[in-house]
């Protein structure tokens, strides 16, 4: 881990010297992909999914809106730790198929939340100490969301 990190750091320090940074970051070192990046994307996608389900099923809004906000808060905190910039507007892909009944919407969210909890568990296991506590809280929050969706 340490060796790989050192090589990455060296690589990014050298990038501007070679003068072939295709994105011209104004002298900023080109960052390697942060292992938190997929978790940021996942948290943003989850926040959007909960918001869409809350809009489609107003009876669920009271339960789903705080969870949507938690995922958005996670995305912001993970991005801050990874020194990433959050996209200003949530990139929603193709609008989700409107699910006809609230039970089906909840079942879909439960599946996505389960997958996300497992991803956060794996990320926590592999994280350095200074990130492990944040990832532990994200994992625990996702497990708590599953309980709240029961």
């Amino acid at each position: 881990m340490i060796r790989a990190g050192a090589l990455l750091a060296l690589g990014s320090a050298l990038a501007p010297l070679t003068g072939c940074d295709p994105f011209d970051r104004d002298g900023e070192p080109a960052p390697g992909p942060d292992p938190l990046a997929p978790l940021v994307d996942e948290a943003l996608a989850l926040a959007a999914a909960y918001r869409e389900a809350a809009a489609a099923h107003p009876t669920l809004a009271e339960r789903l809106t705080p969870i949507a906000e938690a995922h958005a808060t996670h995305a912001a905190e993970l991005a801050r730790v990874a020194r990433m910039t959050l996209p200003s507007a949530t990139a929603t892909g193709a609008p989700a198929e409107p699910t006809s009944d609230p039970d089906a919407a909840l079942a879909t969210l439960r599946e996505r939340e389960k997958t996300a909890r497992e991803a956060a568990t794996r990320a926590c296991a592999e994280a350095p100490a200074d990130r492990a506590a944040l990832l532990a809280s994200v994992t625990a929050a996702r497990a708590a969301h599953l309980e709240a969706l029961r």
Binding site: P66, E77, L134, A144, A148
Partner: peptide, 16 residues
């Protein structure tokens, strides 16, 4: 929290 009627049921960062 559910038994106590406390909402929301979850906090963003458990343990923090």
């Amino acid at each position: 929290r559910r038994t106590a009627g406390i909402t929301p049921l979850t906090v963003p960062f458990p343990g923090r």
